[in-house]
Design a protein around this nucleic acid. Sequence first.
DNA 1: ATGCCGTGGAAACCACGA
Length: 260
Amino acid sequence: MKIATYNVNGVNGRLPVLIRWLTETQPDIVCLQELKAPDEKFPEQAIKEAGYHAIWHGQKSWNGVAILSKSSPISEVSRSLDGDDHDTQSRYLEAVIDGITIACLYLPNGNPAPGPKFEYKLRWFDRLTLHAASLYASGKPVILTGDFNVIPTELDVYKPERWVEDALFRPETRIAFKTLVDQGWTDAIRKIYPTKVIYTFFDYFRNAYGRNAGLRIDHFLLSPDISRHLTAAGVDHAVRGWEKTSDHAPVWIELSKTAH
DNA sequence: ATGCCGTGGAAACCACGA
């Protein structure tokens, strides 16, 4: 089974690209981020016609996450992280599909750093890490995926020296990511390609895609039960070159079978 | 070194993204 994550950067502005990508690649499960649409403007009908069930957690103008499933029903678990009752940003959606817990997340960007936005990012990260610990401890098959807005290592950015002060690459951010992964999660792309240069985001500016000046910030973190079924992982790099495309490329994993 | 582009929403500019 194939599971994908894709930061669409506007689900309605991106609809032709999204539908084409779904039709061509046929993932079984898809996590979307940056819908940039309120719940009532989610393109439910077009996605249904493409063959997918969907749940979504939208927000006017910003953020927004969704989970799509081709054949299996989606059982929603939650649409927020504990730890901040005043957080109104739609950045988290969790569901069970085929017995697998899927956490679809859009971690805050955090720039400019330092500052309140960076503090919000780190607090959000703490809440995610706390919740991830309980998911991990459950022993169930779990996938944490989405736009983490984290460049994990120097291998994951075209010019590390230019990013050291950036919220995506600052030491606090990398440490937070490492702390999360060290609970026992497997970074799927790095399990398959330990040292390969792989990017999932390319700026719209300066021909970043053409120059391969990218970042790897969209990730799959797998529980042990899922990790041992991992057979392949990759980035649909060419999608970033399509007309009217997102600045992110879709990322996917392939599992040998459902893990339970 | 840099929002230079792109999106959404409100209002013919602004906030925001990474």
